[in-house]
Computed example of a mutant assay.
Amino acid sequence: MTSFDEPLHGGPDARGAAPHDFSTNANACGPCPSALAALQKADARRYPDPRYTALCEGLACFHGVDAERIVIAASASEFIGRITAAVAQQGGRGVWMPPHSYGDYQRTAGAWGFEPAPAAGADLAWCCDPSSPFGQAQNGLQALIDAPLPSKGTCVLDLAYEPLRLEGSLGLSPVQKDRVWQLWTPNKALGLTGIRAAYAIAPRDAGAMIARLGRLAPSWPLGAHGVALLTAWTGAEAQDWLRHSLDTLRAWKREQEALCAALGWTCLPSVANYFCARPDVPYAPRAAALRDAGIQLRDTRSFGLPDHVRLGVLPPASQSALQRAWPAARP
């Protein structure tokens, strides 16, 4: 079994959630009150509309696109699996992704027999901005999108962390966005990662792929709570709350980076609510003691980045817990 046969993620383990969980990138200001209220009011007694008509219209209005371009998904990972399968059905076998990226891209591509290919010749290309695990703008993104793909080539831009961008903006024009599949997963931004729900915006003139993805989709990929989350996401209350939360996250991030530097860690640059750092000593030998102290970090070896950890930005109380626990966790 390779490291990509079994998915590796941050978040709760067999012991449950760590009290100070730096291993996920959820909005630590959450949960968003209006989204939480919508979840509490969701009618779980009934199936949702299997076509998600109102939801697709609301998402389309929010993004200023036609509703026919919205593809509902059970989660980002489900969409990754489904669009990889769709490209494979068309005969695609070459895949490109950034050297350090979300493991499900490579894991799913490997399951379908894809082989690495240059970006310009790939049947399936993965982009992510802000990137994971670094939280940085993806180098060369505009050039990659502007370069012609094979006739049936598919480029997916993972925008999971775009709502949590703390600096700058996505450097793409509307025309460039219309050339790629835009994958959105608002549960992180709303601080409600336990609700699995996602959607993609198809490129213009992608009707054939939209139809193929529809044939590959399970019935009702979203339940009532997923519909409630995505509906609340587009509302003014949720968007206002998110904008205010970013100010808090910026302040917490400055404090957390200063703490890591004081511990002797080397922090890598980031524009999002998380960043990577190289600790002064290896993390793995201290991981068990830190977990006992209620601290969990994200080892980045599964991203192809050894000797580093990724930290989501957490409130000052959690930062103080890390400050106390790290020196005491000597193996």
Rank of each mutant, 00 (worst) to 15 (best):
I72Y: 04
S169A: 12
P118E: 06
D292W: 12
D240T: 15
R69F: 00
A261L: 12
S219T: 12
T231L: 01
Q90C: 14
D247R: 12
W220P: 09
Y161K: 07
L322E: 02
P118L: 09
I80M: 10
R278E: 09
G194I: 00
P203Y: 06
G30V: 02
A238Q: 03
R286P: 07
A85H: 14
C56I: 11
A74D: 08
A111I: 10
Q90A: 15
I70L: 06
G171L: 08
A284K: 10
A288V: 11
L242M: 01
L290Y: 04
A54E: 12
A232S: 12
T2V: 11
V227W: 09
P150W: 02
Q90L: 14
R93M: 04
S245T: 06
G92P: 06
V180C: 05
G113C: 03
C127T: 09
S219P: 12
C61I: 10
L8G: 15
V313G: 00
A111Y: 08
P163E: 09
R204D: 14
G235F: 06
T53R: 13
S318W: 00
P221S: 09
L242H: 01
T84S: 07
C128I: 11
A206N: 01
S219D: 15
H20I: 07
Q182S: 08
G264D: 02
W112E: 14
T193K: 07
R15Q: 15
L39K: 03
G191D: 03
P316A: 05
S151D: 15
R310M: 15
Q89E: 13
L36V: 14
S75A: 03
T193E: 06
A289Q: 09
T193G: 04
S75E: 00
R278Q: 10
R324S: 13
A111S: 15
S34P: 02
N25A: 15
R324E: 14
L124Y: 07
W220S: 04
V281P: 12
R179C: 11
A208Y: 10
L314Q: 08
M97C: 14
P48V: 07
A208L: 11
P331Q: 03
A88P: 04
W112D: 11
V87L: 01
P148K: 07
D307R: 09
A67D: 02
G81I: 02
L322H: 04
L59F: 08
P279E: 06
P50G: 01
R278F: 01
H9R: 13
P19D: 05
R330V: 15
P316D: 05
T2D: 15
